[in-house]
Design a protein around this nucleic acid. Sequence first.
RNA 1: GCCUGGGUGGUGAAAUGGUAUACACAGCGGACUUAAACUCCGCCGCCGCUAAAACGGCAUACGGGUUCGAGUCCCGUCCCAGGCACCA
Length: 885
Amino acid sequence: MHEQYQPREIEAAAQSLWDAQKSFEVREQPGKDTFYCLSMFPYPSGKLHMGHVRNYTIGDVIARYQRMQGKNVLQPMGWDAFGMPAENAAMKNQVAPAKWTYENIAYMKSQLKSLGLGIDWSREVTTCKPDYYRWEQWLFTRLFEKGVIYRKNGTVNWDPVDQTVLANEQVIDGRGWRSGALVEKREIPMYYFRITAYAEELLQSLDELTGWPEQVKTMQRNWIGKSFGADIVFDYDEASVGEAGQLKVYSTRPDTLMGATYVAVAAEHPLAQRAAANNPELQAFIAECKAGSVAEADMATMEKKGLATGQFVVHPLTGALLPVFVANYVLWGYGEGAVMAVPAHDERDFEFANKYGLPIKPVYKKIFIKDQPRGERNPEDQEEHVDPAQWQEWYAWKEHLVTINSGKYNDLYFDGAFDAIVADLEAGDHGARKTQFRLRDWGISRQRYWGCPIPIVHCDSCGDVPVPEDQLPVTLPEDVVPDGAGSPLAKMPEFYECSCPKCGKPAKRETDTMDTFVESSWYYARYASPTYEQGMVDPQAANHWLPVDQYIGGIEHAILHLLYARFFHKLMRDEGLVSSNEPFKNLLTQGMVVAETYYRPLANGGKDWFNPADVEVERDAKAKVIGAKLKSDGLPVEIGGTEKMSKSKNNGVDPQAMIDAYGADTCRLFMMFAAPPELSLEWSDAGVEGASRFLRRVWRLAQSHVSAGLPGALDTGSLNDAQKEIRRAIHLAIKQASQDVGQHHKFNTAIAQVMTLMNVLEKAKAESEQDRALLQEGLETVALLLAPITPHICHALWEALGKDGLIIDAAWPAVDESALVQDTLTLVVQVNGKLRGEIQVPAAASREEVEATARANENVLRFTEGLAIRKVIVVPGKLVNIVAN
RNA sequence: GCCUGGGUGGUGAAAUGGUAUACACAGCGGACUUAAACUCCGCCGCCGCUAAAACGGCAUACGGGUUCGAGUCCCGUCCCAGGCACCA
């Protein structure tokens, strides 16, 4: 064993041994428990960033821990290789996206290997390769024939200068990112996955996902957004509209229909179009509604504007005429493209009504009633105006709402009003109860080059014809450099000119590609049989490994990716490819990696961002940060706060520099120790130094222990008190680290336990053979507990400690409960909840004995003097609280 | 705007409703060293009292509430972050 800790040599040796022995290549082993540990695969953007390192370290720790539990562990890796950044890089550097992507993959793969991840590289999957996407195209054609995929118009951001469709990200303050032109909304035909047909199941089966964070399930539930309401039909007022007809709206609040004072329609709605025909003002407003991006955040934060059409519709219950407005916040393509407005009970409608002087008619009032089942009015009910202070004391009185100003529907609670009004609408054929979802069908057409071609041929005679299986894949040419104006494929006759698979006549191939979320929706299943050529997945292999036991990835994927993957799994299930209902049994969502930002304001109002590595932080005597200056010129810079590491803020720290300087183990240890996985992690150079220091301490202790020769076996029956304390520390660490790693994935506290154990072991005597045998047990424990986190150093320690076999094949240590037993316990004593002293009691002491000892405590007597003791609360093993006044 | 989280020392953080600040980092003091690095030892929330301690008071974003006891549960407010369907 070398005297100094030399991470470079140790890590290279361990990694080449694992490589040579194919230690992490797995195959199906019937009868052995499987554990499929999956981290979200990276987009090959160039080099690894800190988020990747964190994500894959967490996954690797879990995978290695499960292996030590005796499981057959599958941990694969691949590349989410299609996407926009490759096209942007291509335009900037005049390189084809394919070349750029493959070079990035090669470099990032070498980086991942240097981290020492226990990955089965024989299963590597790359989504931009035809042997992967051909199966995506195959499934597409099956689903198209089944009607799960269909074509309709959708709204996109249109850059009128570049003549191209823009992603939401490419629209900055309503303008195209390259041209600077004002963006418009435009309708184009697109293909859609009918995800809404699975809305109910996607909602219901969230309940089965007991291994998912509640937070993520709540977000998905709200996203799917099941609501109970009614369609409500308003007849056109023929005099003002000029023709007969009906306007349909959906509302979750038909109970407030009596308070509706106007209706609002989208700019594209037929009523709006008709009214605009000879109304230039309305035409201008409709044009204005088309400006801006399609992003919902933009729509929701923009100023709510509207314009009266001069048209009216008839209230289905009262016969009153309600004015029809065109409003920019009503979206065509969401529901009916029209809403009824109840200003008294909806904040947005209230604001709008005030702005345009529309009537506001309340149909509910507050009452306070004695708490009892809803629907039963109590003769003692209080009408409004109960003093809130008084009300809080009368806890039995609860606030409820009952209808007013609603004619025959007066004096009802929500349910009663809802039912009565919907019943009348149904009877009058002007509405119907309806359950609706907020979830919309998934539009997957992209007018881009670097994506999976949509396998459809457009034939003048036969319509949209899916490409037959024997003509798949539709291969994407890999030597194209896009120019940012429209889709390159649409300008390549050699790509789109073809003949109809049905009738053989000349036809045109679809030139749109698929949303890259499609590839990432099923890669986890392909890993089970990555080279299978007879189908999308080998059902036998897929069912052996799936569902994924542990999925790990960023919280930013809580909705879209995770919902699409769940949807795809159900599609594959319904194709007979997999037998499970859900793809991911347990989910761990990691927080972001953030770092401080530094900048200097520029004359043009912008900011010049400096990398933390180039900045020197100034502190006061108490080490509080008081300023920062640039290392190169020594002049001050502004501190911009901690943010997600990004190119735009120039606060990224390259993980490679850390790996090169300290080694993979230090890097992994720091990442796991700095914060629990779910929290965001702040970058700290000093923290890395600390992690490195700890590993050197472990190495030094092991080295001095081993250099004196390995001791004989430990005799646990003849330990002195000091040795018992040390052995207790060893097994306490095992117990707590096992819980932290195995159950809660709190690697930071598990590491803290091992650090505490190291503090004990370093102070332990190493004189007698028994001392040294105990130290041997302690060091073996440290190596085993750290093995998943810092696998290289532990690999070397295991060998140095004279153990047979590799530590990757060793079992996770077991707790010896007898080592944890204590004779006396320390309890704290409180008086009225305030800490007043400590007492020592025998572990077996009765409640009475504990109470008596507590009451006899000097400080307790001081604080209870002159007071009557009302109550004594004894929490076994913890504390005594004496209540006195 | 809507949905979901978060806010604890100088910093990262810890705490099944039961001793708030474990474990680290930074800082300060000391030992070792020709010197430095490494390493080791000690101190380290704020305030009061004190020669020093003992001791006491106050602190978990802010304001209320429930409880013998609240960082943790409930109500309200503020701030920060993630997502919002074409970034991945």
